[in-house]
């Protein structure tokens, strides 16, 4: 379990914080969606949740702190975060290490960095590839696979670190519908195995049916946090710059047109 209590954060060189008073809990096996307009602070919150902000990019917490499995993480060296919470970004290409010739080596890089023995590294790599169902990509050159598969490779290489928590910042932003479906399925599988997931997404259709909870950010504050079904149907989402899922839009359109909603199925 990972939690932020009353966390604020400001970027290096700025005096005003971009995150204010964030309370967030990620329970094991739970998928939490994170939505909000552009610039509302989703990416920043992702970086704070996994310790890279301020740990790697600088800046400072202006309040509160990150606690993982009961342990306050303040002051811990960065590499200790990597086995507790992994983070993935939107572009699969820039997340590749650029130093490996095959997907297998790419996924193995993290465990290797942990100083594991060759046997453990190979075992973890195989397991991560199997979990995401991409064993068949093992021999492929990482740079020469499709975006959706690339994102699965990225997630696999995070999984090989065996973190109990995973933060993904718009994992499907650059993916086509098929790639998005692949990633969505993979995430569902991970949560079923007990991984806690925080997924920042503009695609509310993906979050609908995937998440248990959804958090809405506006100007660096959490303005709504609740069960996915209720949040994604909230009247105010549009004001907060969040697209409604197709299901909700359709229901509203039919209601507005005076059609009995039970006659329409999605």
């Amino acid at each position: 379990m990972l939690s932020l209590r009353g966390v604020g954060y400001r970027y290096a060189g700025y005096s005003t914080p971009v995150l204010h008073d964030i309370d967030l809990t990620l329970a094991d096996g739970e998928i939490v969606g994170l939505v909000g307009a552009n610039e509302s602070g989703k990416s920043t919150l992702c970086l704070v949740t996994c310790g890279l902000a301020p740990g790697s990019i600088g800046g400072a917490l202006t309040g509160g702190g990150l606690v993982i499995d009961g342990e306050p993480m303040a002051g811990k060296p960065l590499h200790e975060f990597s086995t507790r919470v992994g983070i993935g970004f939107q572009n699969p290409i820039t997340q590749l290490s650029g130093v490996t010739g095959s997907v297998f080596e790419e996924v193995a890089l993290g465990p290797m960095n942990l100083g594991l023995t060759q046997r453990d590294t190979v075992e973890r790599t195989k397991e991560a590839l199997a979990t995401l169902g991409i064993e068949h990509l093992a021999e492929r050159e990482p740079r020469r696979i499709s975006g959706g598969q690339g994102q699965l490779v990225v997630i696999a290489s995070l999984l090989a670190m065996r973190p109990p928590h995973l933060v993904l910042d718009e994992p499907t932003a650059q993916l086509d519908p098929e790639g998005t479906r692949l990633v969505g399925e993979a995430l569902r599988g991970l949560a079923a195995n007990g991984t806690a997931l925080l997924v920042a997404e503009h695609k509310t259709d993906l979050l609908d049916g995937l998440c248990r909870r959804v958090i809405v950010l506006e100007e660096g504050r959490i303005v709504l946090d609740g069960p996915a079904g209720a949040v994604l149907e909230d009247e105010r989402l549009i004001d907060w710059g969040v697209d409604l899922p197709a299901r909700v839009r359709l229901a509203r359109a039919t209601a507005a047109a005076g059609i009995d909603p039970t006659m329409v199925s999605v």
């Binding site: 996994c50 960065l78 993935g88 290490s97 993290g110 990225v154 670190m161």
Partner: peptide
């Protein structure tokens, strides 16, 4: 982005 991603892999 790559350095953040690498950081996430220890």
């Amino acid at each position: 982005e790559r350095s953040l991603a690498l950081e996430s892999r220890a």
